[in-house]
Nucleic acid binder design. Structure first.
Lengths: 234, 234
DNA sequence: CGATTGCTTGAGCGAGGTCAAGGTCAGTGG
DNA sequence: CCACTGACCTTGACCTCGCTCAAGCAATCG
């Protein structure tokens, strides 16, 4: 039994509302808790899952962050997602029963590990858990399609502004500051994700700082004019 | 009871393997059949679902095709998907219980209509149906994230080549010709989807024809050198 | 404390967007 | 059946945004 310390229980987890336990009653949470295991902490650059590996667990991010990426035919990394606390990692693996992307920690990261077989059983008996699974997957479908459209037809400035706004919103949903946060990914990661070069990312961050919209100190971002930034994202 | 004519049964549907009935036994298919209704045929430009409308049905495309799109803050249409026979429309609505995008027929289109409430009930009792739902959603998550990455870092030529290859593969999976098909969407639709201008789409199609890779006559596409086209997509 | 990785800034260039004009096709009504 | 109309497509000319190449600086890590 891995759940010996209190801080690993869903009840006490500040991410519960974004994660699997959403709208579960006390008993439901307890049942979920019994199958959830703690994963050993990842260090920066540790790889959580490899593409092609059989799907054994779904992972929930407790703290820290990860990037998911594929390696294309030319051996080039292609980042498809950044995961923050409360996010689940592994949905893309459900179809084939094996992971289709790599997931790597961007910093020290704590995870909950949910065995797929146990989850499958629980899902049968708990309609609200099933509903939340569907909800999370459906959201992911919409947001990635939305993003696709959004990025496709937008300038570099708009893309980066959009990226920052989205991050800001996600931090807010997690009870963290929406105006002041750390970029745990590198400029190259952002560029890769947004389809822009490192140089462009750097230049635009400088430009946004010059305009007084944000303040950037290395990894630290301060959004000075959130409304203005949101406008720039359109 | 809408299932009076034989051709609307899942058993006889050539798209069954791509659709909800996949890996269902005889009894499972029968049960699914009892809840599935036939939707009246859509004509070109008919709108099937509006963004914001409550989710009542999941739709399966029997024949024809649709595009799904959102309208952004500037009132601009942003195409996020094209649906071919066997595809399901409405997954993005499961999260919120209401549709998040518009879906419009690109040509005369026949649909099966699956009431969500009945589907929910069936899913509880039929593990393989649940599995297939998850599989379809998971695939959609992966493919849209994959596409995001793919398009982002690729040239206009590569994007369009990729688009044609993907269409070709999808037609093949549906038992149709992978080398000769009709583009039911306009050049503007393709451009919107790929983040390119109409002019660029037109120019590149002409260029590909000039190189002898494909032959284009209006909406009709003939892929002359599939391998070469696939190379160009990388 | 050096070495490596990550970030910034500048200069030049090319892919793809915009604007413009003309051509083609499908649907409609006479 | 044909003429008309509006939507759709193609091609050309020009210009701009963002990429590439290059060089130097800053931060992090062993």
């Amino acid at each position: 039994m891995a759940n010996l310390t209190s801080h690993i229980h869903c009840q006490n987890c500040s991410m519960a509302a974004l994660c699997l336990p959403y709208q579960l009653d006390q008993e439901g949470m307890n049942r979920l808790d019994t199958i959830i295991q703690r994963h050993k902490p990842l260090h920066k650059r540790d790889v959580l899952v490899n593409a092609g590996a059989p799907l054994k667990y779904l992972y929930a991010v407790r703290s820290g962050s990860l990037k998911s990426y594929t390696i294309d035919d030319n051996g080039v990394e292609q980042i498809i997602d950044f995961h923050l606390p409360g996010d689940l990692v592994g949905f893309d693996a459900l179809a084939e029963g094996q992971h289709r992307s790599y997931s790597q920690a961007l910093e020290t990261t704590m995870l909950c590990e949910v065995p797929i077989v146990s989850l499958d059983e629980l899902v049968i008996e708990m309609p609200s858990l099933r509903k939340q699974m569907m909800r999370l997957m459906s959201s992911e479908i919409f947001s990635s399609k939305q993003l696709l459209g959004t990025l496709n037809n937008r300038s570099a400035h708009q893309r980066l502004a959009h990226f920052l706004v989205t991050l800001s919103d996600r931090f807010k949903a997690r009870g963290l500051s929406s105006t002041s946060f750390r970029l745990t990914m590198t400029r190259a990661d952002i560029g890769n994700y947004l389809g822009l070069s490192v140089e462009t990312i750097s230049r635009i961050l400088s430009a946004l700082q010059g305009e007084g919209v944000i303040d950037v100190q290395n990894k630290l971002v301060n959004i000075i004019e959130p409304a203005r930034l949101r406008e720039l994202a359109h």
